[in-house]
């Protein structure tokens, strides 16, 4: 029990510290790296809650795809972050005010949270008890049966997105030298070498 609590506080404090560093670090590349650290530790927290599927997804999708994309963007786009930070202090009071209002609203909402007693019975797909099946299995049970239509349709949406990305960005550029293995190995001496008879003393 002690060990669990210690691990929880370790992960949680790293998430918060990394989160602060994301907005505090001067170098945007460092920000993205701290973001990745925050994702990893949040994934650890999910494992503690028994939500191992969310933990996988967080690592695979957010770290593997989204954060790497961010990294590409900050490295390839030449954004002047010093300029973006100008006026930070000037807007700080307004920002703090908005933050405090949001916090108060959240407290009000959570303080008066009620759930209709019938709500649990209306769930489209009831969650099985955690002791019986892991939640990855529980998701798999409905994803390929009850929700197969939506699963396939989402696949079609992704296919369209891929086709669209290719249509809008792929262009055949002339003059690009590509490696053509077959052409290269089927070259013979006759194609490549020309013997010239150079007269003595005249040069080529």
């Amino acid at each position: 029990m002690i060990l669990q609590a210690a691990a929880f506080y370790l992960f949680a404090s790293i998430v918060i510290a990394a989160g602060v560093m994301v907005i505090a670090s001067r170098n945007p590349v460092h920000s993205v790296l701290f973001l990745i650290l925050a994702f990893f530790n949040a994934a650890g927290l999910f494992v503690f809650m028994g939500a191992e599927f969310l933990a996988f997804i967080l690592v695979i999708v957010y770290v593997g795809a989204v954060a790497v994309l961010f990294l590409f963007v900050v490295m390839m786009l030449n954004i002047n972050f010093a300029e973006l930070r100008q006026g930070f202090l000037q807007y700080l009071p307004v920002g703090m005010l908005v933050g405090v209002i949001l916090l108060v609203e959240l407290v009000f909402i959570i303080g008066t949270w009620v759930t209709a007693p019938e709500a649990a019975g209306l769930l489209a797909a009831k969650t099985p008890a955690l002791a019986e099946v892991t939640n990855t299995e529980a998701l798999g049970r409905v994803l390929y049966t009850k929700y197969v239509y939506l699963f396939q349709a989402a696949g079609l949406v992704l296919l369209v997105a891929m086709v669209g990305a290719i249509v809008l960005t792929l262009r055949a550029r002339p003059g690009v030298k590509r490696q053509k293995v077959f052409d290269q190995i089927s070259r013979t001496r006759d194609d490549a070498v020309e013997v010239k008879d150079v007269p003595v003393g005249k040069g080529v």
Partner: peptide
């Protein structure tokens, strides 16, 4: 959900077609 997925499938193809 079926409504939304169908709508997005249609819209996504149309966005690309508009910029074809």
């Amino acid at each position: 959900i079926a409504l939304y997925v169908g709508l997005e499938l249609q819209s996504l193809a149309l966005y690309v077609a508009a910029a074809f």
